[in-house]
Structures are given as structure tokens and as C-alpha cells.
Write a protein that binds this DNA or RNA. Structure first.
Lengths: 262, 262
DNA sequence: CGTTGACTTGACGGAAGTCAAAAGGTGTGG
DNA sequence: CCACACCTTTTGACTTCCGTCAAGTCAACG
């Protein structure tokens, strides 16, 4: 097992981690080490490193301790979506997303290095619009994945299906593929089961429930959201994780297709 | 609701999606449209768009239909981790990861545009090593999130905890923070419950089970994996999703710290 | 030595899983 | 155009894994 850094190098957990997939030139290693030279902050156990909704300007890298990504639901439930160990970055999303859609919590005493915002600005300027678009796409996908973890961990069958349907409605709406809150959704109940972590039988029963409540209709491979407000409520849906910019007063440079749904 | 593209523009679902978070210059819009001009492939319903383990060279963008990210477990269970609608990219991971760790499946008849590999190569060359490192970090985090979804959807309490512990062992090992398969892990059982989507009571009982089987020890905030092979089996753990490069014959430029664990 | 937070135990309940069979659609080929 | 095969949806009876509630133990700490 060959170590690619000199014997006397400072311990750099980020390098250690990234070396599992690539090798770095001496200069890149130096640049990685420079990142570690920034300001360090110690967060005592059970304190918040980054708050939900915070607009972060510099990236936090865990250098010692243990942290977690977690999200609080309005009913008090909490879901931890990931643990962060030394070498993990807490908030790469600052590159492209407006605000955090979850919080970073110190589990044990945790030390972070702040990667200064000018390093980030530099990276952003050297990025093309397309690259930024791809970043956003990736980040936003990751946010959807986290929401799915919450679904599975803390929502029951009815809420899970309602949440999935409501999310699909918004996503179809955004790309202009809905009419009147209905859209083609050619999934079998077995596929819904595989997506929600349920069994086909239970999906069937839950669909009947949602239909009976007048929330949805699902015929001929077309899903109709009969009662969007009701479905949103049934799903305990909160739209922040989708990271859509909302139109503000007089603002017209961002397209708002999700509209009243969020 | 103002449309930022000219009336006669070709429908571009990727643009439609990205416009929810940013606005583009006329030139960027043109570049986005050029991406759509590439080769199109039609995948009939229930066919594989990209196979698990495939080494993809160009990015697939869904332009019509419905696809899904899914993963088959060795026992035949399947978990769908995400649905892909028009405007969604199937495999941005080709930028930095070796091979797909899940498959992309056409749910209904689905049309994709292939974004040619030279566009990708161009983006890669304009990226610094640091940017690529950040990409890898993001992609790899997303892969871990997907695995967590599988945990919650298709594994029971014992497997879920075992899987979490085994993953943490590898991740701590990689950054050099283990000794003898033990590492500090100062989580309470309540936090484990929040991470696994279980209740503290059930976590407690399941931990006792794992202890009784001689798989783990968990004392004084230190987790010891007493029987790594046994724990790996109990977790039905497969390491591909971590995307570590393995050392091949005579190769010494990549560090392999996970070693025998994967 | 009382308070606090984490862990443990027991009894009970319920949401979702399992198994199995029937009913309803859909496409294909004779 | 009917018949057959096949897939999907539906229904019913029964089971189980995990949740809930509540009480009790234990260690740490001021």
C-alpha cells in the first residue's frame, strides 16, 4: 500500500478521501493542502454547524469529529440523511443553490475548516454556464434523493404516495408536460411499490384510499391530481428542497412554471 | 408568467428545467439548444437505457417519456430510487465516476438525446483538479444517498444497522481514522433511529441482536466491528456504490485503504 | 444524592407484509 | 373476431415486524 504523499505531510482527510478515486500531481496536492490552511472552527457536540435555510458563503470541510445532515419535519420528527466524517464537505451546494434545505449538526465535537469564499468565486468564474447548469442539476437531484429518504424513514404509505405524486406533478409542470393537473404516468403498481419501498398489494390499497378521498384519479396511465391542495396536505409537502427560485416583485428574468403548487 | 425564449424556439425540456433557478443569455440558450441537436435514441417501455455497471461515454438526456433509476438486489428485490422526466439527465456521473452503480430503465417509451462525448471532454479539460474533486465528492455523496434509499426501502432493521455500520467502517478506514476495525462513533441510539428510520426502542433491540451474534461491540462511544465478514453478509453489503478504484496489478498511483473490506 | 440523559425491558397494538385466488385488461394469433 | 395467454389490479385472510407506551435501570455530574 503505497502512500502518495511525503512522509512529513500534514494529515489531510480530503486528500485521503479523494485519493481513493484518482491520483494527484504534487501541485494539486499542494493546492489541496492550502485549502486546509483556512480558518478552523470547533463545534461542540449537539450544536448546529449550518442551519436549515441558511445562505452559506464558504464551504465547511469536516476535519475531525462526526456530523450529520438532518432535517426536522413540522411534527417534530427528525431524519438524519447522512453522516459526515473527516474529509467530507458539508455544503458544496453553495456553488449553485440559494440556501440550505437541511441542517448540518455536530454529533460529537466537530472541527471544520472554512474554505474561503474567494476560492469558490474563483472556481465559479472559471465554470461555463453549461457546467453550472449541470452542477445545479446534480445538486437538485441530490436534494430530491434526500427527500426520498425522509419519505421512506418518516412517512407512512399514504403520505409517501401522495408526496411522490405531488412531486411528479410539479416536475412535469415545470417542463410543460401537464394539462389541468394531469399528466401521463405509465407506471404499474408494482413499480410504484419498488419506488416507495412498499408491496404492490399495499400500494393498491393505498391508491384506493387516495382515490376514495377524491385526491387523485389514475386511469389509462394518466394521473390526475383532482385536489392539489388536499394532496399537498396529505403528503406534508414542503417545496424548499426543489430549490426553485420564486418570482419576486418586478422580477421577470426567472421563469416560474410551478406557480401556485409550491 | 414570462417566457424567456422566443416564441418560435424548439421545445427544450432541459432549458425549461434550468430556467427555474437561473436565467440564461441568448448565447447560453443557443448552446443548450445545440445539445438537443445530438443523436436521438428511442427506448421502448421496459427496456434498459443504461445497464448497471456500464461505462457510459456520453450523457443521456430524457426528452420524452418516463425513466427510472433502479437497482436490483441479489435476492431479486428492486428499488427505484428516482423517476426521470423530460429534462432530466441520466448519467452525469460519467464525468468522474468509472461505471454506473445502478441501471436506468425506460418505464414508458422514452426518447433520449445523447450529448456527445466531446462536449463532455471539453468541459472536463476546462475544469481544474479541484473542481473535479468536488464533483467526485458530490457524485459519491449522491451514490451513498441512493444506497440509503435502498436501505430504507428494502432492508429490515438488522440489515439497515449492519449496512450503516459497515459503511462507516469503510469511510473511517479510508480517511485513516480506524484502528483494528474500531472507530469512535459517538451517536446515541436515538440518533441511530433518526438515521435508519426506526424507533429508538427498536434500534436498541436490534443492537442487542447484533451484539449477541458477535458481529459488533459498541461501548464508550466506540464501535468495534468484531466480525467484519459476518457484518458484511448480514448487511448484504456490496461496495460498488462507493466507487473506489481498486488496485490492479502493478498499479500504484491510487491509494487503496479500504483493502479487504470491499 | 438528587437530577438528567441514555439505555433497557415488557406488554400491547397496528401498519404493512405475505400468500393465494379471482377479476379485469390487452395483445396476439388462429 | 374470438380464444387464449399474460399481465395488472383487486380482494380476503392471516402474519409479522416494528411502533407505542410506560416503567425501570444505570452512569455521569453538579
Amino acid at each position: 500500500m503505497l502512500q502518495s504523499k511525503p512522509e512529513n505531510a500534514v494529515y489531510n482527510p480530503l486528500t485521503a478521501k479523494l485519493e481513493q478515486f484518482t491520483s494527484f500531481t504534487a501541485e494539486e496536492l499542494k493546492r489541496l493542502d492550502q485549502l486546509l490552511a483556512g480558518e478552523r472552527v470547533l463545534y461542540p457536540a449537539r450544536t448546529t454547524i449550518i442551519a436549515d435555510g441558511e445562505k452559506v458563503t464558504n464551504i465547511h470541510l469536516v476535519v475531525s469529529g462526526l456530523a450529520a445532515r438532518s432535517k426536522h419535519l413540522e411534527n417534530g420528527d427528525r431524519q438524519i440523511m447522512a453522516f459526515l466524517v473527516p474529509g467530507d464537505l458539508c455544503d458544496v451546494e453553495v456553488f449553485v443553490l440559494e440556501a440550505m434545505d437541511h441542517e448540518i449538526l455536530a454529533i460529537s465535537d466537530t472541527e471544520c475548516v472554512l474554505i474561503p469564499s474567494d476560492v469558490i468565486k474563483e472556481l465559479l468564474t472559471e465554470m461555463s454556464g453549461l457546467t453550472k447548469g449541470l452542477w445545479w442539476s446534480t445538486m437538485s437531484d441530490a436534494a430530491v434523493l434526500r427527500e426520498r429518504i425522509i419519505d421512506h424513514g418518516r412517512r407512512n404509505a399514504r403520505e409517501r404516495l401522495a408526496h411522490l405524486f405531488y412531486e411528479m406533478l410539479i416536475r412535469y409542470r415545470v417542463v410543460g408536460q401537464t394539462s389541468d393537473n394531469s399528466f401521463p404516468f405509465a407506471v404499474t403498481q408494482e413499480e410504484l411499490a419498488d419506488a416507495t419501498g412498499l408491496t404492490p398489494v399495499h400500494v393498491n390499497r393505498t391508491l384506493q384510499e387516495l382515490r376514495a378521498e377524491g385526491l387523485i384519479e389514475f386511469r389509462n396511465k394518466v394521473l390526475t391530481i383532482a385536489n392539489p391542495r388536499g394532496l399537498k396536505k396529505a403528503a406534508r409537502f414542503e417545496a424548499e428542497y426543489l430549490h426553485f427560485k420564486r418570482l419576486e416583485e418586478g422580477q421577470s428574468d426567472v421563469v416560474d412554471r410551478a406557480g401556485d403548487l409550491i
